[in-house]
Design a protein around this nucleic acid. Structure first.
Lengths: 322, 322
DNA sequence: CTGAAAGCGCTTACAG
DNA sequence: CTGAAAGCGCTTACAG
């Protein structure tokens, strides 16, 4: 360590730099000053190797350029940074193998824990690696149906119910559910909620697909070829709604008057659309922050803490598309 | 190292796991098999401490939830991941001090290099720390006017000229430039280009502000209180254009017929707007990928490589808002 | 082709 | 209050 050129031992330097032990004010300031003047920067690789602690946290999502995850990640970064922790990111593209590879390399880098929005197709087994090394992790957004794992997400059934109920109140009885992968828990729960909210006298037609703008556009086009009595679109998420908007207006339909549209997520762009989108707030930023907090507390307590599930209550954001 | 419980020395294990040295096929497979069966995961903290190499790259932007940087970062992550590198992210919120702190902690974590979109107010001095430690870094998107540094960005003057010229061709002579911080190089160059493209007989009114949706909305409202003969809006970027869209339609103006709007960036959402936005493509993904490639080549060659500036040629994306 | 030894830069008991 | 020594898990010359 360079700073020992101030005439003291390495141990002493380490002690003052870490604010540990009892060091005389004189040597303390001496060390601090020489460290500053030398522009000393701690090598955490070495310190972590010895102490076993890490300032890195793995942050794994399917695609950080998806506005939902961009918001989610930015919020997580914020709370992590406040604790001096740094997120290491990886996109899985919803590929389980890529996810496993990211897990391995991050583990290898010695991250202190993980925040993971599981790739499609993940099972509880996908994270056995982390259990084996006893690394704390919290899953979020995507529920893989494992009750023994910490999870922060939202109540999908309730979110669906809110959307369905809102439409029912507006008198819609024949509705299209656009986008979403039919085999996923997120979809099934949301669909169930929609059905409940709409009530038993209603009709729902489903047009599945990956939750992207493209799906929204294409599925809406298909729908419009034979619209029937459909008066409202429930879009799996706001990205899908974006695509639906463009297909709808390409058809000359006026959103909010000719046809209603509701989304899920409340990503920032939706409030600037024409008309602003009515959507079910799923708190991407709140989830990111909460997941980071939960991980932090897991890292602190580490053992002997039962698994927690926190579900944020979705909320209707009433705007002009319905 | 656990794997030496296969009867060989640590050195040998290290050699086979790194594919170095000449090892007999027999011991090689023996080691590989026992490593696999034991679920061995290399501790890179240790290996990096010794070898001085790192698999971490610092990725610093003002805000990763900004769609431009979300795209940028996702693309950078892609090319980094292909090389087995992992991005560590930090948002500066355009605060130079936060940027410095992130630089320090990442340095401390031993990143192999940096990709940085400089926070507003950065000067060449802001990165002296990296020069002192001889850490490769590439700046991008925001030009801080340092010619001795690797930079990947776009030609702002040209981008502005494209937008101005397009509007001039459509017969617009009285134009408002919405959003953007007037003291920034990016703004000044873009403005200069717009003026050139529009031609000398035109009028440009400026409504500055941080390049956000909110600014777009508020500045457009101010403009509309006294619109005068203004027939077109040039928005500093697509986020500003989003805000402008909502203010415009709240005023009952039909975009593309009553008034023209053009943006910069071409973030994904713009193509789904009503009407789709005419914008100047600035290649967020291309920039991210290119910056990562450039950093990679810097890390390889390391010394004796003159600074490079690569500017991507902007391109008009003609859609229906003009 | 393989092993023993040194050393990367720290932190952490342990003496004193 | 401070120092000497061991050791975190690797890689890398150096012998053999």
């Amino acid at each position: 360590m360079v700073a020992e050129k101030a005439g003291v031992s390495v141990s002493t330097v380490s002690l003052v730099l870490n604010g540990k032990g009892r060091i005389s004010t004189r040597t303390r300031t001496l060390v601090e000053e020489t460290a500053a003047s030398l522009g000393f920067i701690l090598n955490r690789k070495a310190s972590q190797l010895r102490s076993g602690k890490s300032a890195l946290v793995g942050l794994i999502t399917s695609d950080i350029s998806n506005p939902f995850f961009a918001e989610f990640s930015a919020a997580a970064e914020g709370v992590l940074a406040d604790e001096g922790l740094l997120p290491v990111i990886a996109n899985t593209g919803d590929n389980v193998e890529r996810q496993t590879r990211s897990l391995e390399i991050m583990l290898s880098e010695g991250v202190a824990g993980f925040i993971i929005s599981a790739a499609d197709g993940s099972t509880p087994k996908s994270f056995d690696l982390l259990r084996r090394f006893d690394i704390p992790f919290v899953l979020c957004v995507r529920d893989i149906g494992d009750e023994n794992v910490d999870f922060v997400g939202f109540d999908n059934v309730r979110a669906g119910r809110i959307a369905g109920h809102h439409l029912a109140e507006k008198g819609h009885k024949d509705v299209a559910f656009i986008g979403g992968v039919l085999s996923h828990l997120n979809y099934q729960q949301r669909y169930q909620g929609v059905a409940e909210g709409l009530g038993s006298a209603s009709i729902i037609r489903s047009f599945g697909g990956l939750p992207t703008r493209t799906t929204g556009q294409e599925a809406t086009q298909v729908l419009l070829e034979d619209r029937g009595a459909t008066t409202a679109l429930i879009c799996f998420n706001d990205l899908v709604a974006a695509g639906a908007y463009s297909a709808l207006s390409a058809h000359g339909l006026s959103i909010g008057t000719d046809i209603a549209v509701v989304g899920f997520d409340n990503i920032p762009e939706t409030s600037a659309w024409t008309p602003p989108l009515t959507t079910v707030e799923l708190y991407p930023r709140g989830l990111g922050a909460r997941a980071a907090q939960m991980l932090l507390s897991k890292i602190d307590s580490h053992h002997s803490r039962p698994a927690e599930t926190v579900l944020m209550a979705p909320q209707l954001i009433l705007r002009r598309s319905t």
